[in-house]
Design a protein around this nucleic acid. Sequence first.
DNA 1: TCTTGTCGACTAGTCGACAAGTAGCACAAC
DNA 2: GTTGTGCTACTTGTCGACTAGTCGACAAGA
Lengths: 238, 238
Amino acid sequence: MPSNMREQVERLSGPGASLPSATVRGIHSQIRHDIVTLRLKPGARLSENELALRFGTSRAPVREALIRLVEEGLIDVQPQRGSFVSRISLAAMQRARFVRESLEVAIARRATERGLSQEAQDRIAAALEEQERVQTDPELFTAADDAFHRALADDIGIAQIWAVLEREKSQFDRVRFLSLPVITPVSALITQHRNILTAVLERDPAAAEAAIRVHLSEVLKSAEALAAEYPDLILDDA
Amino acid sequence: MPSNMREQVERLSGPGASLPSATVRGIHSQIRHDIVTLRLKPGARLSENELALRFGTSRAPVREALIRLVEEGLIDVQPQRGSFVSRISLAAMQRARFVRESLEVAIARRATERGLSQEAQDRIAAALEEQERVQTDPELFTAADDAFHRALADDIGIAQIWAVLEREKSQFDRVRFLSLPVITPVSALITQHRNILTAVLERDPAAAEAAIRVHLSEVLKSAEALAAEYPDLILDDA
DNA sequence: TCTTGTCGACTAGTCGACAAGTAGCACAAC
DNA sequence: GTTGTGCTACTTGTCGACTAGTCGACAAGA
């Protein structure tokens, strides 16, 4: 263990933050959160020993959390060398976009056929209000953005369909955090959300599909510009 | 450890099958194969100790393999109680079908726009021949079936898109193994494959989409009948 | 100056042992 | 006969130690 490891640990978790009884689930979600919010940057080293120290456990629970993160494509493990936060891959972005677009178009289409429950309409309205309120905070806006899409997905009668999207979405999220404060005008995203909702409520499948495609193309549009700006964070393997 | 554990171990792996140097990847794929081919039935108990004995390792690599299987929804772990092969869930089946249909329709649509490379046409032709040849063997036919769908997915220029499908497909596979010898006439499946290929080659997106939907509805059609027949294997949570 | 060997510090991978929780059975008390 | 109660044997969860492999610093030698 390097002599300055404890120092690094305190820098990440804050001095005196002992984090008692951190279980595998907690370790996983904490690291995941740090990665998608870019607090842990692509390429950063993640030592199992260091993390075990930080969370006050042995390496075993840390390893199990890391395995889950490898499974999600957020971490690359190089045997006997180290674990690293995976670089944002343009190819993975394109895949994530293809999956999201295919699934969310199908979800919106189904929603136009079945109509929205009152509960879904309430959740969507709340999400839209929240988006207006927290426009300037990338983390809160992202959460409200997710809430909108999730409310739609949860209402079409396919259990756990959101979980499938969430898996792919983590690839998106990092780019979103990179681009939100800079490029895309947040108000445009909110308008797109309203367009989607309107098309679904009016039971217009073609309009709903078009609105979803416009909305999801937004993120990838900025991705290529960002790849040139942050070549150390984004891997241009498209 | 129960006194008859070694006996069970030998029954699963065969006497004298020592399986040296089985790594995490090997353990995972072996167990996964046993589950999707129904050699390990839904509800069956999977003891970490037993598996460690079977593969000649300690529990650590076994645990890591199990975590991956939990992530795929093939295993449920009940803390301090045991690990069990998950029951086939009708809700999970519907989700898997929704995901497959949405994605494969989008893939076929893209293929009609871009056309098929010569390599893809060769792979698809080989897969169709193979399907004719191994009609009576469920395991081999399933492999050739996958090869068909995979050749299509690999050719549309979205890296790793097949990996997304494969994740969901494992839910399908178990039902497929249950139903293939009994219900669906295999020749009908091959005809459906040919219809998909024809539509793609003729660059007819609507026909390709329709052919895919017909094909994927086949499996779920038999699922509900099977749920009544095998209530101990299939969980009717739809 | 450049190569080569060695050493120390670090890594993930694996291991056996123990901790903590659960289920079932034998057996005593009523 | 019924009920409670502990014992036992099992489970997964966690732990610290050890292995093999990688990397970089640094010194010896050509």
